[in-house]
Design a protein around this nucleic acid. Structure first.
Length: 104
DNA sequence: TACATGACTATCC
DNA sequence: GGGATAGCCATGT
């Protein structure tokens, strides 16, 4: 059973536009919490994978982080690549440019 | 109820 | 600059 916290995370993910990425820290800040690890757990347990763009969430330093499903991180990289987010050596290229910051 | 774990981040060496 | 350590909150056992 998904908790309210998880629903809040998934709902926030849907706000991320195609071709952009965000970080767990930014997500946590938008949700007004410091539980970045809990956010990561919630995203990983997201039951609406195609509906929720969980692949658009990366680590704060621009690295991919982790992913569950398909071929794992490889799938995440491929999906981002298809949306116009270039990846190199497991890291986001021009991270500052493609980074999406949540806006109230 | 209490303990251990995790799709993380910040700090220290 | 890179690797290791500590801190963090929510979840699951």
């Amino acid at each position: 059973m998904a908790t309210l916290f998880q629903h809040a995370v998934w709902k926030a993910l849907e706000k991320i536009p195609s071709g952009k990425v965000t970080s767990y820290a930014a997500l946590a800040r938008y949700l007004e919490t410091r539980a970045v690890r809990a956010v990561g757990s919630a995203v990983g347990k997201n039951p609406n994978a195609p509906q929720v763009p969980c692949h658009r969430v990366v680590r704060g330093d621009g690295t991919i982080g982790n992913y569950s499903g398909g071929e794992g991180v490889a799938t995440k990289i491929r999906l981002l690549s298809q949306e116009g987010v270039e990846i190199s050596e497991g890291k986001i290229v021009d991270f500052d440019t493609v980074f999406w910051e949540f806006t109230p």
